[in-house]
């Protein structure tokens, strides 16, 4: 039950490297008074442009992991028999009979080995898989996160980042949340867009861009979220741009503009600025996309 009407714009791309994060940074600047949420928790880059000052840090726990207490392990190897994820390896040491150890990267956290260890030599603690932060930026409050290596529950972390962004928006009376979504079409993307007011898909005119856009549009349609499409670097392949725009319209998405290929986008990144904070030619295109989005 959200009291005031908060509009949430989620920027996604399907394929990686289409300019999603650069565009999100510009939107954050143009919105002027929004809450920013970086939900690309696997490879978060938005902080490289918005330079957040971290105010709060929170541990993120998700699932459990099995641990063998070496001193209690009798080396029977039953854990290895039960494990279906190839996560248990033998440890050989001189003058000692072999014991077993869990490879944390492969452990799925199912708990089968823990349950069946005949001498109860295993623990099953909660796993710390990353952290999330609340920060302050020149464009307003920002919630962002860092997922640990090989962590799985990124959908859960995405949900936490969005929930916190919404909480801050409610608290501070902000009306807009801008979300940098994860790439792909999997669980984290689904977590980043369900219940959003609008999704904007940033794509590029290439065979892979087109292919991935098709899968993304199927997803946003499935969740009935109003979807806008913008083609970045459109002049790389004009024919493909037209094809993508036609396909997007056919899939029920709204076109919000084209952004020209501009090497000044990288220059802005080097200066830790959003494109619209520089005099890049493409800044004009981005402003027009933002106006068309109607936030």
């Amino acid at each position: 039950m959200s009291g005031a009407r908060i509009e949430e714009l989620v920027v996604i791309s399907g394929k990686g490297g289409t300019g999603k994060t650069s565009l999100t940074a510009s939107f954050a600047v143009l919105a002027a008074d929004a809450v920013i949420a970086d939900c690309d928790v696997d490879a978060a880059d938005l902080h490289l442009v918005l330079a957040p000052r971290v105010l709060e840090r929170h541990e993120f726990k998700g699932g459990h992991e099995a641990l063998i207490r070496k001193e209690d392990c009798t080396g029977c190897g039953l854990c290895r028999v039960y494990c279906r994820f190839d996560a248990i390896g033998m440890v050989r040491e001189p003058n000692r009979r072999p014991t077993f150890a869990v490879d944390p990267v492969s452990c799925e956290g199912c708990g089968v080995c823990v349950r069946f260890c005949p001498v109860k030599a295993m623990d099953f603690p909660e796993r710390v898989c990353g952290e999330w932060m609340v920060s302050d930026t020149r464009c307003g409050p920002m919630v962002h996160a860092r997922l640990g290596l090989a962590a799985e529950n990124s959908g859960k972390l995405v949900s936490i980042v969005r929930r916190e962004a919404r909480r801050i928006a409610e608290e501070k009376g902000k009306e807009v949340i801008i979300v940098d979504g994860p790439p792909g079409i999997g669980c984290p993307v689904i977590s980043s867009l369900t219940g959003a007011s609008q999704v904007v898909v940033v794509t590029e005119p290439s065979v892979s861009g087109e292919h991935d856009l098709e899968r993304v549009l199927a997803l946003t349609k499935h969740f009935s979220i109003p979807t806008a499409v913008c083609v970045n670097k459109w002049d790389i392949n004009q024919e493909m741009t037209e094809r993508i725009e036609k396909m997007s319209c056919g899939a029920g998405a709204r076109l919000v503009g084209r952004i020209r290929y501009d090497s000044a986008v990288t220059t802005a990144q080097l200066r830790e600025l959003a494109v619209v904070e520089t005099d890049a030619l493409s800044a004009e295109d981005i402003r027009s996309v933002w106006d068309n989005l109607g936030f």
Binding site: G16, D42, A43, S106, L147, L149, A150, A151, P183, G184
Partner: peptide
């Protein structure tokens, strides 16, 4: 490999 550093990537590289 898929992009990133999460489980699918580890499953690929292992």
């Amino acid at each position: 490999a898929p992009p990133g550093t999460s489980c699918p990537v580890i499953a690929t590289l292992r």
